[in-house]
Each structure stands twice: as structure tokens, then as C-alpha cells.
């Protein structure tokens, strides 16, 4: 399957799951599980940062249009798309791993721990920015912090479950012929 088709399918599936399953769940009226942004985290390494941000913006905007207030998810998605290349540079194990592999995964990030840290940081940024924009103020800092941290834990758990259920085969590609 070509990379383009694969990613379009992923985007559609993640959106459907987010809008019609996860958004209906409210744990203690506080935590909504967010998983849809995993699509952005799984985009190929070689994609340019500007394209990454534009795709993230459109993707977030589509999700926003389901809930009739555009902007919130789009802003959060653009933020993580902007931060992703920095974190990839920090966590990628050896020189050139991002050219040998197609997209971020446990294998290409060199183990489960760096991968989970990578995912946790981006989930944290996504959720924090999203909740901050929704509340518009640091009205109740503890409420905001607890909500963000709990939501991030749930997001990371969902990401791990997704990784376990849908195993992505990562071919090792090398430049040397």
C-alpha cells in the first residue's frame, strides 16, 4: 500500500474513532480520551515540517467542524506537528535512523522507552494547549493541571493499546545498495 493511501485511511479511521467513540466517553466528567492526534505522530519522517503543520491544521480543522467551534483542535495539532521534528532529533537513537525507517515506531525509535517518552511529551503538549485554549485562562490551575495530566495518561495508554493491536511492520530501508 502506498504511503499516501495508508495515511489517508489512517486519518479517516482515527477521526471516526475519535468523534463517534472516544468523544462519547467522559471519565468523571473530567477526562476525554484523545487518540486522534496519533495520526500526526505517525506521519513519515521525511515529510517537511511545513507540510507537517499544514496537514495537522487541516486534520484538526476537520475534527473541529464536527463540534461546531473551529480552531481548538487545529491549534493543538499544529503545535505538536511543529514540536515533533525537535523531539525526533532528540530521541532518535543513532545517526540516520530517520532515513532508514519510514515513520516513528517502537523499532525506529530504538526501544519502547524512548518511544513512550516521545509519545507522552507530545500528548502532554497537545492536551495542555487544547485545555488551555478551551478555558481561556488559568482560572483554576489545579483543575487544569489534573485534567491535563489525567488526560495525557489516558492518551498514552490508548496509544500503547493501539500499538499492541495494530502491529505496524517496519521495513529497514538502507541507502547503501
Amino acid at each position: 500500500m502506498s504511503i499516501l493511501v495508508k495515511n489517508i485511511l489512517r486519518a479517516v479511521l482515527f477521526l471516526i474513532v475519535q468523534v463517534f467513540a472516544l468523544d462519547k466517553i467522559h471519565l468523571h466528567q473530567m477526562v476525554t480520551p484523545y487518540l486522534y492526534f496519533l495520526f500526526i505522530l505517525w506521519l513519515p519522517f521525511k515529510m517537511q515540517r511545513s507540510w507537517l503543520m499544514i496537514i495537522a491544521f487541516i486534520y484538526g480543522f476537520i475534527l473541529d467542524s464536527f463540534w461546531h467551534n473551529p480552531g481548538f483542535h487545529a491549534a493543538a495539532c499544529v503545535l505538536i506537528a511543529y514540536l515533533r521534528p525537535f523531539l525526533v532529533n532528540i530521541f532518535i537513537p543513532q545517526e540516520g535512523a530517520d532515513t532508514n525507517f519510514e515513520e516513528p515506531s517502537i523499532k525506529s525509535m530504538g526501544g519502547i522507552l524512548p518511544y513512550i517518552i516521545f509519545m507522552s511529551i507530545l500528548s502532554l503538549f497537545h492536551n495542555a494547549w487544547l485545555f488551555l485554549l478551551e478555558a481561556w485562562q488559568f482560572g483554576n490551575i489545579w483543575y487544569f493541571l489534573v485534567k491535563t495530566i489525567l488526560s495525557t495518561i489516558i492518551s498514552v495508554l490508548l496509544i500503547i493499546i493501539t500499538e499492541l493491536i495494530f502491529v505496524r511492520k517496519q521495513k529497514f530501508r538502507t541507502n547503501t545498495v
Binding site: 515540517r49 511545513s50 491544521f57 473551529p70 481548538f72 491549534a75 499544529v78 511543529y82
Partner: peptide
């Protein structure tokens, strides 16, 4: 700084949407 500028532009656009939805 094209990436940073694009990032800021998209953020401002999103926030504009939120404010004047």
C-alpha cells in the same frame, strides 16, 4: 525562520477562528 513563521501564522489563524467563531 519560515517554519516558525508558518507555525505562528497557523496558531494565530486557529485562535482567530476560536475568538470570532
Amino acid at each position: 525562520f519560515s517554519n516558525l513563521l508558518l507555525f505562528l501564522f497557523l496558531q494565530v489563524l486557529s485562535i482567530y477562528f476560536i475568538v470570532s467563531y
